[in-house]
Nucleic acid binder design. Sequence first.
DNA 1: GCCCATTACTTGGCCAGCCAACATAATGGT
DNA 2: ACCATTATGTTGGCTGGCCAAGTAATGGGC
Lengths: 172, 172
Amino acid sequence: MVGNHSPAKEAPHARPHPAERHSRLPAPSARPACGGQVSHALARVARSHRTTAGHLLRRLGLYPGQELLMMRLWEAGPQRQSELIKLMELDPSTVTRMVQRLEQAGLISRCAHPGDRRAVLIETTPAGEALREEVEQVWRDLEERTVAGLTEADRAELSRLLSLLERNLATG
Amino acid sequence: MVGNHSPAKEAPHARPHPAERHSRLPAPSARPACGGQVSHALARVARSHRTTAGHLLRRLGLYPGQELLMMRLWEAGPQRQSELIKLMELDPSTVTRMVQRLEQAGLISRCAHPGDRRAVLIETTPAGEALREEVEQVWRDLEERTVAGLTEADRAELSRLLSLLERNLATG
DNA sequence: GCCCATTACTTGGCCAGCCAACATAATGGT
DNA sequence: ACCATTATGTTGGCTGGCCAAGTAATGGGC
């Protein structure tokens, strides 16, 4: 991975005082007049989607989010970090760190921008380039799995609606 | 936020599924260059949505994600942590830490489960209860902003499609 | 009674992402 | 030339979220 893992230890605590309240309420998933039908669904689906992407990307040594940055580089070639930030709509600090990790992983490299000493130029390394096919395959798999069972019309409709939502949320 | 920082005053702070349908799958239509149309849109919209939620929740001293846990407690009353984990479909460790922070913020309290010394019962505190109206208002606002401009039919359709996606991603 | 799988939770570690504050470098105006 | 403004990145700090690994308590089988 572009990182790694490890173990654990113990801990205390525990507070007395039961007071056992039996609040057996109605079924958990009643769809109450809970304000956010679409919001909830969107959040759940997106998290699930991201987690699935994570599992697939894992074998390639990437974390979800990193593949998007790589894809931008593959498609648009070497570019300024500020360009990545703008296009991916991420916080500058997020990109800075992601870039640091990807560089350390040997997938990209940073170099000074000739002509603007503030800027950093970012480009893929051969190792990074080598991941392209696999990552794109992962995305095809993911997309297929995501919209499985939807008709062509459904997919188009979904894209249309998501675009509307994106517009709504952008302007605010 | 709920974790630390501060705000203005004190104590509690200031910091702050529907339908389904048939559909036969057609040939893997040749998609545009970019493999994940829906996937990309979904990811972008969801991130934007979450960020927007974050801005709204911020004034209440909450981080996005925490409000969902509170809402479950408000709706279903005191319950085991394992129940929250199951219903929210989160990793146990995620809930453990979220609960620790919310407890430290004074919004919920943990106590031993009488009869099962492994379990932890979680309930809202008065301070937590006091946030309910505001949080629910935030969610109504968020939902409204999210689906603004969509017809009733569009909203229903969107919910339907998202449910399908959820099902697709769950089984895998 | 005794042993073991299961359940419930916790900690360590790592990542994306955000905000705030900061250091530099380029630019524009006067 | 000089200085304020803008552009570009970076670091610190905090969150949600995941995985791996570990501690306890429960419950079942023998």
